[in-house]
Simulated assay, not measured.
Amino acid sequence: EYTYKIGMDGIIKDRSFGKVEAQPEEQAQPSEAPKQEQKETETPQETTPSNVVDKQIAIDNALANAGLAQSDVSDLSCKLNSAKTEYTVVFQFGDTKNHITLDAHSGEVISSIIE
């Protein structure tokens, strides 16, 4: 169950969710290894320009906006657009796919879409 309070600016101001203890632990453990491998293979291929926030900061800010930790999610990816102005963080949490866009210079969340 999810409850969100969204401000007029479209940013999530408050959120809460209930977890079933057994399922997230079982789902999180198998997905941890692929998630770490994906992060390790993507990081060396990409270099972050000096005028944008670090990729891990973008991931941390996106997850904080959703009220989650990296261990709570699977299929995590983070990409900087070609103009180097926005990061798009995509991850799976339970049955929902989350797309969070962040300003690449400040690290602030611009939008959050849940499918």
Rank of each mutant, 00 (worst) to 15 (best):
L102V: 05
V20Y: 13
I113N: 12
T43E: 14
F93E: 10
K19V: 05
D9C: 06
V53F: 01
V53T: 05
D60K: 10
M8I: 11
G94Q: 10
K79V: 14
D103C: 10
I6S: 11
F91Y: 11
T48Y: 01
E42V: 12
G10D: 01
Q70V: 08
D60N: 13
A33V: 12
A83T: 12
A104V: 00
V20E: 10
E46M: 07
S16V: 05
D75P: 05
C78H: 00
Q56C: 06
S74E: 09
S112G: 07
K5A: 13
N98A: 06
I57Q: 09
I57Y: 00
I6V: 15
S74N: 03
V109E: 01
N61A: 06
A28W: 02
N81G: 05
R15V: 06
Q45A: 07
E40A: 11
D72F: 04
D60A: 09
Q36Y: 10
A64I: 07
I57S: 03
Q45F: 07
K39D: 15
T41D: 14
A83N: 12
K13G: 11
E108N: 13
D72N: 09
V90Y: 00
P30Y: 10
F93A: 12
N51W: 05
L76M: 14
L80Y: 01
N61E: 04
S74F: 06
Y2A: 13
N65D: 09
K19R: 12
T85R: 05
I114N: 15
S74M: 03
Q38I: 15
E21D: 15
E108D: 15
K5F: 12
Q56E: 11
I12D: 02
E42A: 12
L63N: 00
E42W: 09
A62R: 01
L76V: 14
S77N: 10
Q36R: 15
E108G: 10
N81V: 00
E42I: 08
V52I: 06
P30F: 14
S106I: 07
F93L: 06
Q29A: 14
S82Q: 15
K5C: 15
A66Y: 01
V109L: 05
Q23M: 15
A62M: 00
V90K: 07
I11D: 02
K13Y: 12
A62Q: 00
Q56N: 08
P30H: 13
E42P: 05
S111Y: 00
I11H: 04
Q38E: 12
V52T: 04
N65P: 05
T3I: 10
T96Q: 12
N61I: 03
L68E: 01
M8W: 11
Q92A: 06
Q56P: 05
L63H: 02
M8D: 14
T96N: 09
Q70I: 09
T88Q: 07
K55V: 07
V73K: 03
Y2C: 08
F93V: 04
P24L: 03
S71G: 11
P30W: 15
S74L: 02
I110H: 03
E46Y: 05
N51A: 05
